[in-house]
């Protein structure tokens, strides 16, 4: 019935194949690259040291020679969990404060898309982490899960405050030293002034002469030293 000219159709078909093939290769390569990129995104937070400590205490490997793992006292495990919760609090605070800023910056185009992806992943991880801590706490002491983060929060706030206090206290020594020195110089200056005042009355005439002389003097110095002073300064610098 229909006499199909296969040879004539060859060209359009080849065109279609090339077109579709190009698009498909492009899309697969692009997607693969995206996936690799998002998989390789650096984590928002560094390694969670406190969690690692807690987990290693919880799952102590038996030492060589003995069959049973060493018994870790409950109080140590609980303390380790509390430390882990404190670190979590730090991270949550960081995420909460950064979230608003990060999303506005992303909208404005001031930060990149991958930062936002990293951020969202960190947020999700933190949610998991919190749930995990609550479950662990409940397993250790029933009902502890409800209050563990309250105490962790207080510990964290206390630590921040104490750090700042320490920082301020560290300065006291230096400030004291400086003030002693400063007081000595001020005292010296006062004494000198008093001496001068006493001397002034005797030499009031000669002092007027010296003032008149001093007006000329700087000009003389000025013509002599301009080449000498900068080079002197640079020499001083180079000696350091």
């Amino acid at each position: 019935m229909f006499d199909i000219d296969w040879r004539g159709l060859l060209l359009p078909l080849a065109y279609l194949v090339v077109l579709v093939g190009t698009f498909m290769t492009f899309s697969t390569v692009y997607r693969k690259r995206k996936a690799v990129e998002s998989a390789n995104l650096a984590p928002w937070f560094g390694p969670h040291l406190q969690r690692n400590i807690y987990l290693s205490i919880l799952h102590m490997e038996p030492e060589e020679g003995s069959e049973k793992a060493p018994k870790v006292p409950d109080s140590v495990i609980r303390a380790a969990l509390l430390r882990r919760a404190v670190e979590d609090i730090h991270r949550i605070i960081q995420i909460r404060t950064a979230k608003q800023a990060c999303s506005t910056l992303l909208q404005r185009g001031s930060v990149g898309d991958d930062l936002w992806q990293r951020f969202q992943r960190a947020e999700k991880e933190m949610e998991e982490e919190l749930r995990d801590v609550v479950m662990e706490a409940n397993a250790l002491v029933p009902g502890w899960g409800q209050i563990i983060f309250q105490s962790a929060n207080e510990i964290a706030a206390n630590k921040v405050l104490r750090d700042r206090l320490e920082e301020i206290e560290q300065q006291t020594e230096r400030d004291k030293e400086w003030w002693e020195k400063r007081r000595a110089t001020i005292k010296n200056e006062f004494m000198k002034e008093l001496d001068e005042e006493a001397g002034d009355k005797a030499q009031s005439k000669t002092s007027t002469n010296s003032v008149a002389g001093s007006e000329d003097e700087p000009v003389l110095v000025g013509t002599d030293t301009p080449s000498a002073t900068p080079s002197g300064a640079s020499k001083k610098k180079s000696k350091k």
């Binding site: 110095v221 000025g222 013509t223 301009p226 002073t229």
Partner: peptide, 15 residues
């Protein structure tokens, strides 16, 4: 001027 012009300090021109 009396503060900054002097030996090892500024010359009159620099000031």
């Amino acid at each position: 001027r009396s503060l900054v012009v002097g030996k090892n300090l500024l010359s009159e021109e620099q000031y």
